[in-house]
Design a protein around this nucleic acid. Sequence first.
DNA 1: CGTCTGCTTGAGTCAGGTCAATTCTCGTGG
DNA 2: CCACGAGAATTGACCTGACTCAAGCAGACG
Lengths: 242, 242
Amino acid sequence: MIENSPLVRKLGAFVALSDSELSVLTSLHKRRRTFVAGRDLVLQGQSDQAAYILASGWASSYKLLEDGQRQIVDFQIPGDFLGLRSVLLNVSDHSIEPVTDIEVTEIHVDDLLGAFSQTPRLATAVLWAASRDEAMVVEHLVSIGRRDAAERMAHFLLELGARLALVGLGSKDGYACPLTQYLLADALGLSAVHVNRVLRQLREAGMVTFRDGSVVFDDYDQLANFAQFEPSYMDQRGPLLQ
Amino acid sequence: MIENSPLVRKLGAFVALSDSELSVLTSLHKRRRTFVAGRDLVLQGQSDQAAYILASGWASSYKLLEDGQRQIVDFQIPGDFLGLRSVLLNVSDHSIEPVTDIEVTEIHVDDLLGAFSQTPRLATAVLWAASRDEAMVVEHLVSIGRRDAAERMAHFLLELGARLALVGLGSKDGYACPLTQYLLADALGLSAVHVNRVLRQLREAGMVTFRDGSVVFDDYDQLANFAQFEPSYMDQRGPLLQ
DNA sequence: CGTCTGCTTGAGTCAGGTCAATTCTCGTGG
DNA sequence: CCACGAGAATTGACCTGACTCAAGCAGACG
């Protein structure tokens, strides 16, 4: 069923898509591809890349500094775009590495831009999706700039949970999480050692347990309160554009 | 001259605009408004806002935490959008405060989305502009996550200089800068006291002087090298879409 | 079985924060 | 013209959250 593709579900939350728009959207889904964990899809500085939509698995977008430090900007979960910004800017400002083995569908820029002129509402929907991604990056920025390590970790685990819940991969009880403590460190701007200490602290406080590839919310409300988690920036409440 | 409006110049860098597209774009420019420094235009959580294009002056976008801490996400300079994300998401995830007295032109969402259906290439251009803004936020995130205070400050002053140079308000010699050390602190995730110390350090190293409302690059190359400043993510090299 | 990747914990250090005091405008009212 | 107060910049003394270095452990895999 085409209507169940992650992209359709995502864009449909903003724009009520007509049959003809759906079929244009469907025609975008080109080749299905798979990539193995750890081998980069896109490298910082490359141009003329394709964009992808993540069908299964997790990926990470990151930037490397010259001195070898790494900052992970965001993780992508099923339904998310990979490399959309890279194609629009023509040159990628970041690298993308699969965290697990992943399946994606490839989209060519020309097709995407062509689709915009046939069905302008699609352009609006994509612009909305991009804004939503940007809001997530902004919240991440605030976390790193102004929250201490424990709050930052708590907020991050909650946000990831909320995103996964939207695509049916998590709940307020917890979720399966393939990230290592090293990946958490690079995402949160901490050292791996400190990530470990903070996780222990949150676990001993009875709020979350991160262990063996799964996140368990031991006390969701207390955790949300501790992290000042305000998920309004990721709300989806029905198509805004009829 | 309409062709000289900051928005037209900005979008024209990505999409070669036809006369009819230009006239649609022009029709978007509604009421001209002014706001005084320090009084917020948009507050976190508000909905049904208008978007604006900044014509003169500087503004800041920030988020407040419940405990009163503030993180400035970005500063806007002439030609930049204000609150575009807020209208697309329908509810603002951040507040906007003018740093100086500012002049803006108001744009109504309905008009903007309507314009997309008449001239889809405009939608592509706006999507491109949004991607460029996002790339800036991402670079800011990397700075806060992985650079120490001095590198962060150096990188920030260089990026601002490059942005100002694009709209004719700065050069490699320096630029007029209305920011206070408190604003810098909230933008860089530092304390105001430490901002002061870092500025002194950079000044005494002969790289930049931040003083009396102006930034002077005493040794641009040394500073760029010190900050690992790689401005490729903000390059503009001619219309990509003919 | 040895090696590798990921997790855990302790000890010591330091970048950047907090608190506090001082100076320097500059606008405002007497 | 001068006293005053508010905002901004500056500097010192001290403290602490997070880092680095180092060591040890456990499961996975060839």
